[in-house]
Simulated assay, not measured.
Amino acid sequence: MIEVSIEEAGYDKNRPIINNIHFSIKRGEMIGLIGENGAGKSTTIKAILGLLPYFKGKTEFANLTPNFAYIPEQPIYYEYLTLWEHIELLASVKNLKREIWEKEATYLLTSFRMEGVKHHYLSNFSKGMKQKVMLMLSILTHPDCYIIDEPFVGLDPRAISEFLKVLKIEKQRGAAILICTHVLDTAEKICDRFLILSKGKLVVEGTLSYIQENCKLIDGSLLDCFDLLLEGEIL
């Protein structure tokens, strides 16, 4: 579905932030992108999306016109549009059939407990509520690929549970998912493979069992392995 090959990238050609990051994501696969603050996770996402001033490498999608959804850590919205108007605008831009998107939108509003505020302006929402809107809008388009940056920040437990259920359904549909998160216990349960970044480089790629084997922590959690990697005992 996606082939990513980053030789180097950043905001200044003379000072690249990330180097030698190469990976792929298959259909129906969820990849966890993890690393400490400043490791280069968000920069990697921006490189994939083509949002960096300097990028040496390439990103290839299976489709010539890739259909992907990007869910940023900081919600982006139109201040003077209501939640329902955001949904209507998206449906219009994507040319979705009204009888289909209305039914799905109603289901999502109910699932995320947002039906009571669908005619309210997003400028009055909490960050968690805005994040729910970003999730709902991305799900509504059923993209081939999701690129998600810290989706659990600000979400209540029920919203997290509902989001994880939807991601499972989207995986089964064949969507490729790249999810960047610091919530390692959740990532351990839902991701098929992991990309661990440190100081702008990809240091480990593989399944949890592969990472455990390399860290010599057969029964260790992802957090245990991550701590050992950052301590420099493996790198």
Rank of each mutant, 00 (worst) to 15 (best):
I87W: 01
H119F: 09
S92P: 03
G50M: 08
E88A: 07
F163C: 06
G232W: 12
Y78I: 13
N124I: 13
E233C: 15
I190D: 05
A159E: 00
L235N: 15
G28H: 11
I21S: 03
E115G: 06
C191W: 02
Q74I: 13
K103T: 12
V204H: 08
K132P: 02
L135R: 09
L49V: 09
S138W: 06
H120T: 12
L122R: 04
H182F: 00
V166K: 13
E102T: 14
L96T: 11
A105V: 06
K199C: 04
E188G: 02
Y54Q: 08
E170I: 05
A175C: 15
G10M: 02
S5R: 14
E188L: 06
C225Y: 07
K132N: 08
L135S: 08
V204E: 12
F23A: 00
S42N: 14
L81Q: 08
K165E: 14
K127Q: 10
K199A: 04
I45V: 13
E36T: 14
L155G: 09
I139T: 08
E99W: 05
R158I: 15
T59P: 01
P72C: 11
I196P: 03
L137M: 11
C180P: 01
Y11G: 13
V166P: 04
G206N: 02
L155N: 01
K103A: 10
F194Q: 01
I177M: 11
R158Y: 15
G32N: 02
Y210K: 12
F23H: 08
Y146P: 00
G232Y: 10
A105I: 04
N214E: 15
G40E: 07
I25L: 08
I71W: 04
L222R: 02
I234G: 11
Y70G: 02
C145R: 00
I211M: 07
M129W: 00
M134T: 14
I18W: 01
M114K: 07
A175Y: 05
D192W: 06
